[in-house]
Amino acid sequence: MIIAIYYNIVFVFLPEIGADLGFTAQNLQWVVSAYAVAFGGFLLLGGRATDLFGRKNMFVLGMFLYAASSLVGALAGDPVSLIAARAAQGLGGAGAGRRRGWAARSWLPPRSRSSPPCSRRAPSVTGRCRSGVAPAGPAWFSARSSAGC
């Protein structure tokens, strides 16, 4: 989530970034585009690297690269170093991007296998009740089809 937020929050600060670092109006878009191009371009490569090196290793490496390039971008004094830092952020985001859900699931304690079966089936039962299938049963389908629906 932080990867998506950080991508969009830059739009708010583009005028200040341009004024502080001396960007021209034509080159200011590269602050956003460098991140997007690197993130999108290396997303498949990040997935393949995850297959080769493991989910945890790629997640940690991607987050480290993301954090380090964020620090470099915050300390950037010229447009070229900021654009390079944003590209490195995109690369780190692509490395960690698809593994975020895995990290959250793997660090939480596993659900007990001895939980009652009704707690595992509750979402599907409530969904059927809300849709009208469970209360009416098979008659619901025949009544709907004979009514021309």
Rank of each mutant, 00 (worst) to 15 (best):
L43H: 02
I17R: 08
L44W: 03
A49W: 08
G18K: 04
D20M: 05
Q26F: 06
A34Y: 04
G40V: 05
T24R: 00
F11D: 13
Q29G: 09
V12G: 13
E16W: 13
F23W: 07
A38V: 00
Q29L: 09
S33N: 15
G41N: 10
G18I: 04
S33G: 13
L14V: 07
Y35C: 09
Y35D: 06
A34G: 02
F11T: 13
A36E: 10
T50A: 10
E16A: 14
S33W: 12
G46I: 00
F42E: 13
A38E: 02
A49S: 07
L14M: 11
G41T: 00
Y35R: 02
T50Q: 05
T24L: 05
L14W: 13
L45I: 09
V37C: 03
F13A: 15
L28E: 04
G18D: 11
V12S: 13
N27Q: 15
I17S: 00
Q29F: 04
Q29S: 05
R48A: 09
T24F: 03
A34H: 07
A19T: 11
A19I: 00
G18N: 08
L21D: 08
A38S: 13
P15M: 14
T24V: 03
A25G: 05
V31P: 01
F23P: 00
V12K: 14
D20T: 01
G18C: 11
F11A: 15
T24Y: 02
V32C: 02
V37E: 00
G40W: 09
F39C: 07
A38H: 07
N27G: 12
L21H: 03
S33E: 15
F11L: 15
V31A: 09
L45S: 03
L28S: 10
A25K: 03
A19P: 01
A38M: 13
G47K: 01
A34E: 09
G40A: 12
L14Q: 13
P15I: 11
G40H: 07
G41M: 05
F39S: 12
D20K: 09
F42H: 00
G47A: 08
A36I: 01
A25C: 01
S33R: 05
F39I: 06
L45P: 05
Q26V: 00
L44E: 02
G22D: 06
L44F: 03
F39L: 15
S33P: 10
F42K: 01
L14D: 14
A49L: 15
N27L: 14
L21G: 07
L43N: 03
E16P: 00
E16C: 05
S33I: 11
G40Q: 13
Q26R: 10
G40M: 12
T50S: 08
L44C: 08
F39Q: 14
I17E: 04
F11H: 15
Y35Q: 10
G41Y: 03
L43A: 13
G41A: 11
Q26S: 07
F42T: 05
G47T: 06
G40L: 12
T24I: 04
G41L: 07
A19N: 14
A36L: 05
L43C: 06
V12Q: 15
G22W: 08
L45C: 11
